[in-house]
């Protein structure tokens, strides 16, 4: 029932900081075993992210932020502790359920866009809908509408090679949004873009957040993190800083000035 979800996302837009947690992690650990060595990538992390928030997860490489992102993205499961995404405990879910959770609740945006080669934009955006259960009837129209919404209405048949970096990332964002997820999970979304394009993409995220979607941004660039209302910093598998800013960067306001 994607429509009801859409409605709930829209309903949340009126009050961006409703305190009902969309993601809640408690005492989360993730241990990787590499041969005889064990690496504690996350070591007892507790965290709540409210629906409608705009969060930046920061940290150097090896800090645990990527591991956190994989867990929040339901791509991986914790070694111990509990992680609830959209009310569901990830630890108890099988791989099919995780896939469905990713499909329904999470939209991914990657640094390298991860578009399919030799595939027109429209088909890229249709992809998550193909894996939806139940599969919607009008997936082509849904995908087209999303591409129009990110400003690529005239690029439906373009292949990634025929698009600029910014346009490719917009296609990826349209793909992430097409199934009306509650969470937009962006991993270094501007890492491969120039400054100007980065600002455009961040403006798009801000706008989407204003419309109600929870944006979680994983980045190591402090500049980019300033768009978020909340900045969580990881180091050595722990949260070392969790700061809420009253005045996040607002591209609209900046443009008005």
């Amino acid at each position: 029932m994607s429509t009801s979800k859409q409605q709930s996302a829209v309903a949340a837009s009126g009050a961006p900081a409703t305190l009902q947690p969309l993601i809640s992690a408690s005492n989360l650990t993730k241990v990787y075993t590499m041969g005889e060595q064990t690496v504690r990538a996350l070591d007892g992390v507790s965290l709540e992210i409210a629906e409608g928030d705009f969060v930046a997860i920061m940290g150097a490489s090896g800090s645990g932020k990527s591991t956190m992102m994989n867990l929040i993205g339901a791509l991986d499961q914790p070694t111990s502790g509990t992680l609830k995404i959209d009310g569901r405990d990830v630890a108890t879910m099988g791989s099919d359920e995780l896939a469905d959770l990713r499909n329904r609740s999470i939209g991914f945006v990657f640094q390298q866009f991860n578009l399919l080669a030799r595939t027109p934009a429209l088909r890229q955006v249709m992809l998550p809908l193909l894996y939806a259960h139940p599969r919607p009837e009008n997936i082509e129209e849904m995908a087209r509408a999303r591409l129009v919404a990110v400003g690529l209405g005239d690029r439906l048949d373009h292949h990634p090679r025929q698009l600029s970096g910014g346009q490719q990332q917009r296609v990826a964002i349209a793909r992430a949004l097409v199934n009306n997820p509650k969470i937009l999970l962006a991993d270094e979304p501007t890492g491969a873009l120039d400054t100007k394009t980065s600002e455009e993409i961040m403006a798009l995220f801000t706008e989407l957040n204003r419309q109600g979607i929870t944006v979680i941004l994983v980045t190591h660039e402090p500049d980019i993190a300033t768009y978020a209302r909340r900045q969580i910093t990881f180091r050595d598998g722990h949260i070392v800083d969790d700061e809420r800013r009253d005045h996040a960067r607002d591209p609209q306001r900046e443009a008005a000035q």
Binding site: G73, L75, S95, D96, A99, D100, R102, N103, R104, F108, N114, L116, A117, L127, P128, Y131, A132, R175, N179
Partner: peptide, 16 residues
């Protein structure tokens, strides 16, 4: 492999 990873990320099940 990347394409497979992406398909899984956007909700492709193993059997898909």
């Amino acid at each position: 492999t990347r394409e497979i990873g992406l398909r899984m990320a956007v909700g492709g099940r193993k059997r898909d």
